[in-house]
Protein backbone atom coordinates (compact mmCIF):
# COMPACT_ATOMS: atom_id res chain seq x y z
CA UNK A 1 0.00 0.00 0.00
CA UNK A 2 1.48 3.34 -1.04
CA UNK A 3 -1.02 5.63 0.66
CA UNK A 4 -3.43 4.83 3.45
CA UNK A 5 -5.79 7.45 4.87
CA UNK A 6 -8.12 6.48 7.66
CA UNK A 7 -10.99 8.55 9.09
CA UNK A 8 -9.41 11.88 8.23
CA UNK A 9 -11.21 14.90 9.68
CA UNK A 10 -10.24 18.47 8.84
CA UNK A 11 -12.18 21.46 10.13
CA UNK A 12 -11.93 25.16 9.27
CA UNK A 13 -13.69 26.60 12.32
CA UNK A 14 -17.33 25.56 11.80
CA UNK A 15 -16.83 24.14 8.30
CA UNK A 16 -15.95 20.47 7.97
CA UNK A 17 -13.67 20.19 4.94
CA UNK A 18 -12.96 16.48 5.37
CA UNK A 19 -15.45 14.29 7.16
CA UNK A 20 -13.98 10.89 8.08
CA UNK A 21 -12.34 10.59 4.69
CA UNK A 22 -10.78 7.24 3.77
CA UNK A 23 -8.48 6.38 0.91
CA UNK A 24 -6.16 3.53 -0.01
CA UNK A 25 -3.81 3.59 -2.97
CA UNK A 26 -1.95 0.55 -4.24
CA UNK A 27 1.46 0.67 -5.84
CA UNK A 28 1.37 1.33 -9.58
CA UNK A 29 -2.25 2.36 -9.84
CA UNK A 30 -3.83 5.59 -11.05
CA UNK A 31 -6.40 6.63 -8.50
CA UNK A 32 -8.90 9.32 -9.39
CA UNK A 33 -10.34 11.64 -6.78
CA UNK A 34 -13.53 12.80 -8.44
CA UNK A 35 -15.84 15.41 -7.09
CA UNK A 36 -17.25 18.88 -7.67
CA UNK A 37 -15.23 22.01 -6.92
CA UNK A 38 -14.93 22.60 -3.19
CA UNK A 39 -15.69 18.99 -2.20
CA UNK A 40 -12.33 18.63 -0.38
CA UNK A 41 -10.05 17.03 -2.98
CA UNK A 42 -7.22 19.56 -2.62
CA UNK A 43 -7.63 19.64 1.17
CA UNK A 44 -7.24 15.86 1.25
CA UNK A 45 -4.04 16.06 -0.83
CA UNK A 46 -2.65 18.87 1.31
CA UNK A 47 -3.29 16.86 4.47
CA UNK A 48 -1.62 13.78 3.00
CA UNK A 49 1.41 15.89 2.05
CA UNK A 50 1.56 17.50 5.52
CA UNK A 51 0.90 20.91 4.03
CA UNK A 52 -2.13 21.16 6.30
CA UNK A 53 -2.70 19.88 9.79
CA UNK A 54 -5.79 17.79 10.48
CA UNK A 55 -8.03 17.26 13.46
CA UNK A 56 -8.40 13.50 13.44
CA UNK A 57 -7.36 10.43 11.53
CA UNK A 58 -4.26 8.62 10.32
CA UNK A 59 -2.11 9.05 7.23
CA UNK A 60 0.54 6.61 6.10
CA UNK A 61 2.69 7.01 3.00
CA UNK A 62 4.94 4.15 1.90
CA UNK A 63 3.97 2.38 5.14
CA UNK A 64 5.28 5.19 7.37
CA UNK A 65 3.48 7.93 9.25
CA UNK A 66 3.57 11.12 7.21
CA UNK A 67 4.84 14.31 8.92
CA UNK A 68 6.37 17.67 7.84
CA UNK A 69 9.89 16.38 8.60
CA UNK A 70 9.52 12.96 6.96
CA UNK A 71 12.20 13.86 4.39
CA UNK A 72 12.89 10.25 3.35
CA UNK A 73 9.22 9.89 2.31
CA UNK A 74 9.15 13.31 0.64
CA UNK A 75 12.08 12.33 -1.56
CA UNK A 76 9.73 9.86 -3.32
CA UNK A 77 6.79 12.27 -3.76
CA UNK A 78 6.04 14.73 -6.54
CA UNK A 79 3.31 17.35 -6.59
CA UNK A 80 1.78 19.11 -9.56
CA UNK A 81 -0.39 21.78 -7.97
CA UNK A 82 -3.60 23.14 -9.43
CA UNK A 83 -2.09 26.59 -10.01
CA UNK A 84 0.94 27.00 -12.26
CA UNK A 85 3.56 27.43 -9.54
CA UNK A 86 6.83 28.54 -11.09
CA UNK A 87 9.15 31.55 -10.85
CA UNK A 88 8.34 34.27 -13.34
CA UNK A 89 11.94 35.50 -13.23
CA UNK A 90 13.51 32.18 -14.20
CA UNK A 91 13.51 30.54 -17.61
CA UNK A 92 11.88 27.19 -18.33
CA UNK A 93 15.14 25.29 -17.81
CA UNK A 94 16.09 27.28 -14.70
CA UNK A 95 12.69 26.61 -13.13
CA UNK A 96 12.94 22.86 -13.70
CA UNK A 97 16.55 22.88 -12.46
CA UNK A 98 15.60 24.80 -9.31
CA UNK A 99 12.81 22.39 -8.33
CA UNK A 100 15.01 19.40 -9.18
CA UNK A 101 17.70 20.93 -6.96
CA UNK A 102 15.37 20.68 -3.96
CA UNK A 103 15.72 16.88 -4.24
CA UNK A 104 18.85 16.07 -6.22
CA UNK A 105 22.16 17.53 -5.05
CA UNK A 106 24.44 15.79 -7.55
CA UNK A 107 25.05 18.24 -10.38
CA UNK A 108 25.47 15.72 -13.20
CA UNK A 109 22.48 13.63 -12.18
CA UNK A 110 20.41 16.80 -11.91
CA UNK A 111 21.42 17.90 -15.40
CA UNK A 112 20.35 14.51 -16.79
CA UNK A 113 17.02 14.58 -14.94
CA UNK A 114 16.31 18.13 -16.13
CA UNK A 115 17.03 17.14 -19.75
CA UNK A 116 14.74 14.14 -19.44
CA UNK A 117 11.93 16.21 -17.92
CA UNK A 118 12.22 18.78 -20.71
CA UNK A 119 12.07 15.95 -23.22
CA UNK A 120 9.11 14.39 -21.45
CA UNK A 121 6.95 17.52 -21.59
CA UNK A 122 8.32 18.46 -25.01
CA UNK A 123 9.56 21.93 -24.05
CA UNK A 124 12.92 21.63 -25.85
CA UNK A 125 12.18 24.63 -28.02
CA UNK A 126 11.24 26.81 -25.06
CA UNK A 127 14.06 26.20 -22.55
CA UNK A 128 15.18 29.82 -22.60
CA UNK A 129 11.68 31.25 -22.47
CA UNK A 130 10.30 32.97 -19.38
CA UNK A 131 6.95 31.53 -18.23
CA UNK A 132 5.01 34.69 -19.14
CA UNK A 133 5.94 34.09 -22.80
CA UNK A 134 4.39 30.60 -22.76
CA UNK A 135 0.80 29.71 -23.69
CA UNK A 136 -1.54 28.28 -21.04
CA UNK A 137 -0.91 24.72 -22.22
CA UNK A 138 2.88 25.13 -22.23
CA UNK A 139 2.78 26.63 -18.74
CA UNK A 140 0.87 23.57 -17.56
CA UNK A 141 3.54 21.34 -19.09
CA UNK A 142 6.22 23.33 -17.28
CA UNK A 143 4.24 22.96 -14.06
CA UNK A 144 4.19 19.18 -14.58
CA UNK A 145 7.91 19.05 -15.43
CA UNK A 146 8.75 20.86 -12.17
CA UNK A 147 6.71 18.30 -10.21
CA UNK A 148 8.07 15.13 -11.79
CA UNK A 149 11.66 16.07 -12.65
CA UNK A 150 13.14 14.19 -9.66
CA UNK A 151 11.43 10.94 -10.79
CA UNK A 152 9.12 10.41 -7.81
CA UNK A 153 7.42 7.07 -7.14
CA UNK A 154 4.21 8.77 -6.02
CA UNK A 155 2.80 11.72 -7.95
CA UNK A 156 -0.07 13.95 -6.92
CA UNK A 157 -1.68 15.74 -9.83
CA UNK A 158 -4.22 18.32 -8.73
CA UNK A 159 -6.48 19.20 -11.66
CA UNK A 160 -3.56 19.55 -14.08
CA UNK A 161 -5.71 20.20 -17.15
CA UNK A 162 -7.79 23.11 -15.89
CA UNK A 163 -8.06 25.87 -18.53
CA UNK A 164 -6.07 23.94 -21.12
CA UNK A 165 -6.88 23.53 -24.83
CA UNK A 166 -7.85 20.09 -26.18
CA UNK A 167 -4.46 19.43 -27.79
CA UNK A 168 -2.49 20.19 -24.62
CA UNK A 169 -4.99 18.22 -22.54
CA UNK A 170 -4.43 15.10 -24.66
CA UNK A 171 -0.68 15.62 -24.42
CA UNK A 172 -0.87 15.89 -20.64
CA UNK A 173 -3.15 12.88 -20.24
CA UNK A 174 -0.91 10.74 -22.45
CA UNK A 175 2.08 11.89 -20.40
CA UNK A 176 0.37 10.82 -17.19
CA UNK A 177 -0.34 7.40 -18.70
CA UNK A 178 3.31 7.12 -19.63
CA UNK A 179 4.44 8.04 -16.09
CA UNK A 180 2.18 5.30 -14.75
CA UNK A 181 3.54 2.80 -17.27
CA UNK A 182 7.05 3.69 -16.10
CA UNK A 183 6.06 2.64 -12.58
CA UNK A 184 4.80 5.76 -10.81
CA UNK A 185 1.73 5.59 -8.63
CA UNK A 186 -0.57 8.48 -9.45
CA UNK A 187 -3.26 10.25 -7.46
CA UNK A 188 -5.25 12.37 -9.84
CA UNK A 189 -7.87 14.87 -8.74
CA UNK A 190 -10.35 16.19 -11.25
CA UNK A 191 -13.89 17.27 -11.77
CA UNK A 192 -13.79 16.18 -15.42
CA UNK A 193 -15.63 12.87 -15.74
CA UNK A 194 -14.10 11.93 -19.07
CA UNK A 195 -10.56 12.31 -17.72
CA UNK A 196 -11.28 10.15 -14.70
CA UNK A 197 -12.91 7.49 -16.88
CA UNK A 198 -10.10 7.52 -19.41
CA UNK A 199 -7.16 7.60 -17.00
CA UNK A 200 -8.02 6.06 -13.67
CA UNK A 201 -7.98 2.42 -12.75
CA UNK A 202 -9.88 3.19 -9.59
CA UNK A 203 -12.00 6.18 -8.64
CA UNK A 204 -13.10 7.66 -5.34
CA UNK A 205 -16.13 9.89 -5.63
CA UNK A 206 -16.11 12.70 -3.09
CA UNK A 207 -18.73 15.15 -1.93
CA UNK A 208 -18.83 17.45 1.09
CA UNK A 209 -15.52 16.11 2.37
CA UNK A 210 -16.66 12.48 2.33
CA UNK A 211 -15.62 9.56 0.18
CA UNK A 212 -18.99 8.46 -1.10
CA UNK A 213 -17.91 5.36 -3.02
CA UNK A 214 -14.80 3.88 -4.51
CA UNK A 215 -14.05 1.23 -7.09
CA UNK A 216 -13.35 0.73 -10.76
CA UNK A 217 -15.62 2.65 -13.12
CA UNK A 218 -17.48 -0.58 -13.91
CA UNK A 219 -17.98 -1.27 -10.22
CA UNK A 220 -19.25 2.25 -9.65
CA UNK A 221 -21.72 2.08 -12.53
CA UNK A 222 -22.97 -1.27 -11.30
CA UNK A 223 -23.86 0.36 -8.00
CA UNK A 224 -26.67 2.42 -9.46
CA UNK A 225 -30.11 1.28 -10.57
CA UNK A 226 -30.11 2.94 -13.99
CA UNK A 227 -28.20 0.74 -16.38
CA UNK A 228 -29.32 2.23 -19.69
CA UNK A 229 -30.79 5.50 -20.94
CA UNK A 230 -32.54 5.93 -24.29
CA UNK A 231 -33.12 9.43 -25.54
CA UNK A 232 -35.86 9.78 -28.16
CA UNK A 233 -37.35 12.86 -29.74
CA UNK A 234 -41.00 12.63 -30.83
CA UNK A 235 -42.63 15.00 -33.29
CA UNK A 236 -45.93 14.52 -31.46
CA UNK A 237 -46.91 12.40 -28.46
CA UNK A 238 -49.83 12.48 -26.06
CA UNK A 239 -49.47 12.32 -22.28
CA UNK A 240 -51.42 9.06 -22.14
CA UNK A 241 -48.93 7.45 -24.52
CA UNK A 242 -46.05 8.57 -22.28
CA UNK A 243 -47.83 7.01 -19.29
CA UNK A 244 -48.21 3.76 -21.24
CA UNK A 245 -44.53 3.86 -22.17
CA UNK A 246 -43.65 3.95 -18.46
CA UNK A 247 -45.23 0.51 -18.16
CA UNK A 248 -42.71 -1.07 -20.56
CA UNK A 249 -40.42 -3.70 -18.96
CA UNK A 250 -37.47 -2.35 -16.87
CA UNK A 251 -38.46 1.35 -17.28
CA UNK A 252 -37.69 3.29 -14.08
CA UNK A 253 -38.50 6.83 -15.11
CA UNK A 254 -39.09 9.13 -18.08
CA UNK A 255 -37.80 12.69 -18.06
CA UNK A 256 -38.92 15.33 -20.60
CA UNK A 257 -36.60 18.00 -21.87
CA UNK A 258 -38.25 19.96 -24.75
CA UNK A 259 -39.10 17.43 -27.46
CA UNK A 260 -36.63 14.94 -25.98
CA UNK A 261 -37.70 12.15 -23.68
CA UNK A 262 -35.05 10.37 -21.60
CA UNK A 263 -36.24 6.88 -20.73
CA UNK A 264 -34.26 5.27 -17.92
CA UNK A 265 -34.04 1.50 -17.70
CA UNK A 266 -32.87 -0.69 -14.89
CA UNK A 267 -30.69 -3.66 -15.68
CA UNK A 268 -32.35 -5.90 -18.24
CA UNK A 269 -32.26 -7.10 -21.82
CA UNK A 270 -33.96 -5.93 -25.05
CA UNK A 271 -34.78 -2.45 -23.71
CA UNK A 272 -34.27 -0.84 -27.14
CA UNK A 273 -36.22 -3.60 -28.97
CA UNK A 274 -39.13 -3.25 -26.58
CA UNK A 275 -39.20 0.52 -27.08
CA UNK A 276 -39.05 0.32 -30.89
CA UNK A 277 -41.93 -2.16 -30.89
CA UNK A 278 -43.94 0.21 -28.69
CA UNK A 279 -43.28 3.11 -31.10
CA UNK A 280 -44.36 0.99 -34.06
CA UNK A 281 -47.48 -0.22 -32.31
CA UNK A 282 -48.52 3.32 -31.36
CA UNK A 283 -47.55 4.64 -34.82
CA UNK A 284 -45.39 7.36 -33.32
CA UNK A 285 -42.97 9.39 -35.40
CA UNK A 286 -39.54 10.08 -33.96
CA UNK A 287 -36.82 12.39 -35.27
CA UNK A 288 -33.88 11.02 -33.31
CA UNK A 289 -33.15 8.08 -31.03
CA UNK A 290 -30.00 6.99 -29.25
CA UNK A 291 -28.97 4.81 -26.37
CA UNK A 292 -26.52 5.77 -23.60
CA UNK A 293 -24.79 3.68 -21.00
CA UNK A 294 -24.65 5.32 -17.54
CA UNK A 295 -21.79 7.72 -16.87
CA UNK A 296 -19.98 8.60 -13.66
CA UNK A 297 -22.20 11.65 -13.58
CA UNK A 298 -25.20 9.32 -13.28
CA UNK A 299 -23.43 7.59 -10.42
CA UNK A 300 -22.82 10.93 -8.75
CA UNK A 301 -26.37 12.08 -9.47
CA UNK A 302 -27.88 8.99 -7.93
CA UNK A 303 -25.63 9.16 -4.89
CA UNK A 304 -25.99 12.87 -4.15
CA UNK A 305 -29.08 14.01 -6.02
CA UNK A 306 -27.08 16.64 -7.92
CA UNK A 307 -25.02 16.91 -11.07
CA UNK A 308 -21.24 16.65 -10.74
CA UNK A 309 -20.80 20.01 -12.46
CA UNK A 310 -23.24 21.84 -10.11
Amino acid sequence: MVVKVKNLVKRYKEIIALDHFNMEVDEGEVLGLLGPNGCGKTTAINCILSLLSFDKGEIEVFGKKMSPDAYDIKRQIGLVPQEVSVFGNLTVRENIDYFCGLYIYDKNLRRRFVDEAIEFVDLKDYVKFYPKKLSGGLKRRLNIACGIVHKPKLIFLDEPTVAVDAQSRNFILNGIKQLNEEGSTIIYTTHYLEEAEMLCKRIIIMDNGKDLVSGTKEELKAMITTSEKIIVSFSEIRDETVSEMKKLPHVIDIEKDGDDYMIKFENGFNNLTNLLEFIKEKELTYTKLHSQLPTLNDVFLELTGKELRD
Binding site: L49, P68, K74, L79, S85, V86, F87, N89, F99, L102
Partner: peptide
Protein backbone atom coordinates in the same frame (compact mmCIF):
# COMPACT_ATOMS: atom_id res chain seq x y z
CA UNK B 1 12.91 38.09 -4.70
CA UNK B 2 11.71 36.84 -1.32
CA UNK B 3 8.11 37.51 -2.34
CA UNK B 4 8.69 35.04 -5.19
CA UNK B 5 10.19 32.43 -2.86
CA UNK B 6 7.38 32.97 -0.34
CA UNK B 7 4.62 32.71 -2.94
CA UNK B 8 2.08 30.24 -1.49
CA UNK B 9 2.27 27.51 -4.16
CA UNK B 10 6.03 27.76 -4.68
CA UNK B 11 6.46 27.62 -0.90
CA UNK B 12 4.27 24.49 -0.85
CA UNK B 13 6.47 22.87 -3.47
CA UNK B 14 9.45 23.57 -1.25
CA UNK B 15 7.63 22.23 1.81
CA UNK B 16 6.90 18.87 0.20
CA UNK B 17 10.47 18.55 -1.07
CA UNK B 18 13.20 16.60 0.67
CA UNK B 19 15.26 19.76 1.21
Amino acid sequence: VMADFNEYNIENRRKISSK
